[in-house]
Write a protein that binds this DNA or RNA. Structure first.
Length: 565
RNA sequence: CGGGGCGUAGCGCAGUCUGGCUAGCGCACCUGCCUUGGGAGCAGGGGGUCGGAGGUUCGAAUCCUCUCGCCCCGACCA
């Protein structure tokens, strides 16, 4: 492809409204443009990258025995009403009516529609298993789109759905996906990991996420370097690192106007780890007291799984319900439901005395208060792994894919039944599996860039090679470049030639920005000695090779690097 | 949805507090000359309903009211 014939609007300066590196670079290098919040247009280079990723996805899905189909984006409401998600999902679903007034929605995922299809067509155990997938647009009215193409309101997803006769059979489909996903992300050149995750609104019992480490990510995972435990912090189990046990008698301490853990711990010259943080929550209309160690944070989602939806109590409610001002509340003597972090079962602590300007020191679980014990704190770096007691590390990540065991959550309400060998009617056992190609692209940039621009992994770069004829007014340069360009093209190599009548500096800057992994630089001086230069975008190392052998050498470079990937 | 920030040429910005000449600068763009190994130089040129609506005023990018949009933090989240 000739640069002059391609629409590649590069920018010298970073757009003012971009913050994430991948966002800045994709806009600057002319890969994408923004239409509105969370809505992006893919320009030729961006679309090419996305299609390279999609091709890898399809290859691996097909190789795993999955079948590509395509479903509508526009859905009738009834199907979503049957599974209950029409009501369970809030403003995140785009809803509309057709001309007859019938409720419709735009698909944010396709469990319902896939299951509807299965319910119509699958009758016998002989029809199973099936794995169907599609590369298709999802629409989600995100509360806050952000970070360029990392979180958008419209995006393409590879989503697949498995239909099996039993949980054991589902395990197999699940495993097939796990293996395919490992191959896909490896081929895309990403650093990634598989972690345990919370199934959330998808339902089902087991799920895993595929995470690409990056500061631009929105999720956090807890990782154990020793035993390999890896989980989203939404459910990661950990023990806060223990503190030396104190042998305090239970006694009141006067703490005038000291309310927060930080204030009291300063006042008493004690580490926050010796405190119990008491948080009053309102769950429906019943109050619940949540307790975590003073140096820990409560994790809302963990608590949510135990007590359901809840909200923090207002200061006035605290006084009404507990009879004491917020800041001096504690678990001792409370009659209301208490959910406490498991680490508080050991040791003696300081907490509010439920008396204005007083705290209690020497509180011991079991003796002084009782609670339901759960892991409800937010795992953080330095916590101990719950299975092997090594130190955990918490890292920021981009979610690039996920796999869910759904069981019969969708097949039962949508009546996707089959007859088994014994003639019994049974619900199909399902799984669903997603990958976001745009997030793969963004994560690849987040993980592979330098001050000059993008450094694409070879497998998903928009081109294999960029040829840079430095002076288009020099006939020898043009001839040599065109010659190499034609030879490479004839060999099926995807090559971009910067044939613009620009100065060398402009071409170098744009080439580095765009990030094609291999550059072939053709300049007058080298050419006079029969040489051209090939340069690795990542290492910036270059070697000179003969013009005549250039096409062959470049071809070998490309095929070698692709087989490595 | 709560908090903060910002809307002036394709991009990046100044001007707004303290109203006043024909609304400016850099880059990009067009023409010509020149130049060709890291975003050259010279000369000439085109491009703006100052996000929108209403108001105050002799006069509004600037002040007031309303409104729309975008970004960031938080809440939320297949």
């Amino acid at each position: 492809m000739l640069f002059s014939r391609l629409f590649i609007p590069t920018l010298r300066e970073a757009p003012a409204d971009a913050e994430a590196i991948s966002h800045i670079l994709m806009v600057r290098a002319g890969y994408v443009r923004q239409l509105a919040a969370g809505l992006y247009m893919y320009l030729p280079l961006g679309w090419k990258v996305l299609n390279k990723i999609n091709a890898i996805l399809k290859e691996e899905m097909d190789a795993a025995g999955c079948q590509e189909i395509s479903l509508p984006v526009l859905h009738p409401a009834e199907i979503w009403q049957q599974t209950g998600r029409w009501n369970a999902i809030g403003d995140e679903m785009f809803r509309l009516k057709d001309r007859t007034g019938r409720d419709m929605c735009l698909g944010m995922t396709h469990e319902e529609i896939m299951t509807w299809l299965a319910s119509r067509e699958i009758r016998s155990y002989r029809d199973l298993p099936q794995i169907w997938y599609q590369m298709q647009t999802k629409m989600r009215d995100e509360a806050r789109p952000k970070s360029g193409i990392l979180r958008t309101r419209e995006f393409i997803m590879k989503d697949s759905y498995s239909f099996d006769i039993s949980e054991e059979a589902l395990d197999k489909s699940y495993q097939i996906h796990a293996e395919a996903y490992h191959r896909i992300f490896s081929r895309c050149g990403l650093k990634f990991m598989q972690v345990q995750s919370d199934p959330g609104m998808m339902g089902g019992a087991v799920s895993h996420e595929y995470m690409a480490p990056s500061a631009a990510g929105e999720d956090e995972v807890a990782l154990c370097g020793n035993c390999g435990y890896a989980a989203n912090v939404e459910l990661a189990l950990s023990s806060p690192s223990p503190v030396a046990e104190q042998d305090w008698p239970l006694e009141e301490v006067h703490t005038p106007d000291k309310r927060t853990v930080a204030e009291v711990s300063n006042f008493l010259k004690l580490s926050p780890a010796y405190f119990i943080k008491s948080i009053l929550l309102i769950c429906g209309s019943t109050p619940v007291l949540a307790l975590v160690r003073g140096d820990q944070d409560l994790h809302e989602k963990k608590l949510n799984r135990i007590i359901g939806n809840h909200r923090p109590a207002q200061k006035t409610e605290v006084k009404e319900i507990l009879g004491v001002e917020a800041g001096f509340i504690g678990p001792v003597g409370q009659k209301i439901r208490i959910v406490a972090d498991a680490c508080l079962q050991e040791g003696a602590y300081v907490s509010g005395a439920n008396k204005q300007h007083y705290h209690l020191r020497g509180i011991k679980a079991g003796r002084d208060f009782n609670a339901e014990w759960h892991d409800i704190h937010t795992a953080k770096t330095g916590d101990l792994c719950s299975s092997c007691k090594s130190e955990l590390k918490v890292e920021r990540v981009i979610e690039i894919g996920n796999i869910f065991k759904l069981g019969t959550k969708y097949s039962e309400p949508l009546k996707a039944y089959f007859l088994d060998e014994d003639g019994n009617e049974k619900p199909v056992v399902m799984g669903s599996y997603g990958i976001g190609p745009a997030r793969i692209a963004a994560a690849a940039i987040e993980q592979n860039h330098d001050k000059d621009g993008i450094i694409w992994p070879k497998s998903i770069a928009p081109f294999d090679i960029e040829i840079l004829p430095l002076n288009m007014n020099d006939p020898d340069t043009v001839k040599a470049a065109t010659d190499i360009y034609n030879k490479l093209k004839a060999q099926g190599i995807d090559v971009l030639m910067d044939d613009r009548n620009e100065r060398a500096g402009v071409k170098f800057k744009d080439a580095d920005l765009i990030g094609i992994p291999l550059q072939a630089i053709i300049g007058e001086k080298n050419l006079k000695q029969g040489l051209i230069e090939i340069k690795d975008r990542r290492t910036k190392e270059s070697v000179k090779i003969g013009v005549d052998e250039a096409a062959d050498v470049l071809r070998k470079h490309v095929s070698k690097s692709l087989s490595e990937a």
